[in-house]
């Protein structure tokens, strides 16, 4: 089966909504099936790729950082880039520049690019399927 391209636009900030987890699962599934994925992240979703995210211990549960093993979205997305590379397909991740500026979210993991709505339009025009996940 030749690879197809899925464009996906997301808006939810990390840890606030099940939408973020589902979006990452959808991206994972598409890459795993050998398809290219173009992600346009805007509003709170630009925080998904912030390099400074860090796991933490949990004093209430009495766990250390290692025991708590708290996931971070930037690590999950790094893993998605690695999956794309292993599968020989493209994961293109664009953060909306204006949303990045408003949130101070400019220090991101490798593989992410700054862009704008035009990037999303161009991705849509080049894609076989498009999914927009709105926030509430």
């Amino acid at each position: 089966m030749s690879p197809q391209t899925l464009s996906i636009a997301i808006m939810d900030a990390p840890y606030e909504s099940a939408n973020s987890t589902t979006a990452l699962r959808i991206i994972h599934s598409a890459l795993n099936q050998g398809h290219h994925v173009h992600v346009f992240a805007y509003e709170g979703a630009v925080n998904l790729t912030m390099k400074a995210q860090a796991p933490h211990a949990n004093a209430i549960k009495g766990t250390t950082v290692e025991e708590e093993n708290h996931p971070t979205t930037k690590d999950w997305i790094t893993a998605l880039f690695q999956l794309a590379k292993a599968k020989g397909v493209t994961l293109k991740w664009v953060n909306c520049g204006l949303c990045v500026d408003e949130r101070g979210a400019g220090d991101w993991i490798d593989g992410v690019h700054r862009g704008g709505p035009q990037d999303f339009i161009q991705s849509v025009q080049a894609s076989d399927g498009v999914l927009v996940i709105p926030t509430r």
Binding site: Q4, L6, T22, S29, A30, G129, V130, V132, P134
Partner: peptide, 19 residues
């Protein structure tokens, strides 16, 4: 079902996906 099927459906020609 599962998300693999969702992807297959989303990429089917002439499909519009609404969330």
């Amino acid at each position: 079902s599962h998300l693999d099927r969702l992807i297959q459906l989303c990429l089917t020609p002439n499909t519009k996906t609404i969330w």
